[in-house]
Amino acid sequence: MALNFGKVEFVRSAANRSGFLRDGLPQFAFAGRSNVGKSSVINRLAGRKNLAYVGASPGKTTQINYFMVDKGAYLVDLPGYGYAKVSKAEKERWGKLMENYFQDEGGLITVGVLIVDIRHKPTENDLTMHRWFRESGCPEIVVANKLDKLKKSQVEPAVQLIRETLELTEEDILVPFSAEKGTGKEELISLLNQACER
């Protein structure tokens, strides 16, 4: 049974390990730089304007936010990284929170969704996140957001650069995406549904 992404509701925020949900439902973990449009991608999947908080200033997601999809899985919005003007202590707290989530004994992540900016080469932080997904053993989908900002002729070279930087193989999944226009939405929903069925 495919999940209906039109039925999404906010469940809770976790500021530490005790807040993690461990009820056995699949968890789609969304990660990305603070200004990459992660919340916009989640909002586009759900067909809602302001389900996930879209901040005017990057770095607003400081906790792990859980959204229930059709009573059958969770979209997990992880704190954005690498940009937010926050204190060192706060950055360390985020890092610890993420580490705890990734290393939880229960293996919480069903599929990792790494969101990168299609216009730029993935950053060192993107590479770290990519490695975390790899090391946790979960399948990963790379979503190259902001597709609407490129000319058609620029898309293929941009996708190639991302694949090379992240050392993706032919089997690895990369979805060119536009949170603005909705391009890639159906493909991503289909991939998430497939991950649930495995």
Rank of each mutant, 00 (worst) to 15 (best):
residue 2 A to N: 14
residue 5 F to W: 11
residue 6 G to I: 06
residue 6 G to S: 15
residue 6 G to T: 12
residue 8 V to G: 13
residue 11 V to A: 10
residue 12 R to K: 15
residue 12 R to A: 15
residue 13 S to P: 00
residue 15 A to H: 08
residue 24 G to A: 14
residue 25 L to D: 01
residue 26 P to D: 02
residue 26 P to Y: 03
residue 28 F to T: 01
residue 33 R to A: 00
residue 33 R to Y: 08
residue 35 N to M: 00
residue 37 G to Q: 11
residue 39 S to A: 10
residue 40 S to C: 05
residue 41 V to Q: 07
residue 41 V to T: 14
residue 41 V to R: 07
residue 43 N to M: 14
residue 48 R to Y: 03
residue 51 L to G: 07
residue 53 Y to I: 05
residue 60 K to I: 11
residue 67 F to A: 06
residue 69 V to P: 02
residue 72 G to N: 09
residue 76 V to Q: 06
residue 89 A to D: 15
residue 94 W to K: 14
residue 97 L to G: 02
residue 98 M to A: 14
residue 100 N to L: 12
residue 102 F to M: 14
residue 102 F to D: 11
residue 103 Q to A: 06
residue 109 I to G: 03
residue 111 V to Y: 03
residue 114 L to D: 01
residue 116 V to L: 00
residue 121 K to G: 04
residue 126 D to E: 14
residue 128 T to S: 10
residue 129 M to C: 08
residue 135 E to M: 12
residue 136 S to R: 12
residue 138 C to P: 02
residue 138 C to D: 09
residue 139 P to D: 02
residue 141 I to S: 04
residue 142 V to P: 06
residue 145 N to Y: 02
residue 145 N to R: 05
residue 145 N to L: 11
residue 149 K to Q: 06
residue 151 K to W: 02
residue 153 S to Q: 15
residue 155 V to I: 15
residue 162 I to E: 04
residue 164 E to S: 11
residue 165 T to H: 01
residue 167 E to F: 09
residue 169 T to A: 05
residue 171 E to L: 09
residue 171 E to S: 15
residue 173 I to M: 06
residue 176 P to I: 05
residue 178 S to A: 09
residue 180 E to A: 01
residue 188 L to M: 12
residue 188 L to G: 06
residue 190 S to E: 08
residue 193 N to Y: 08
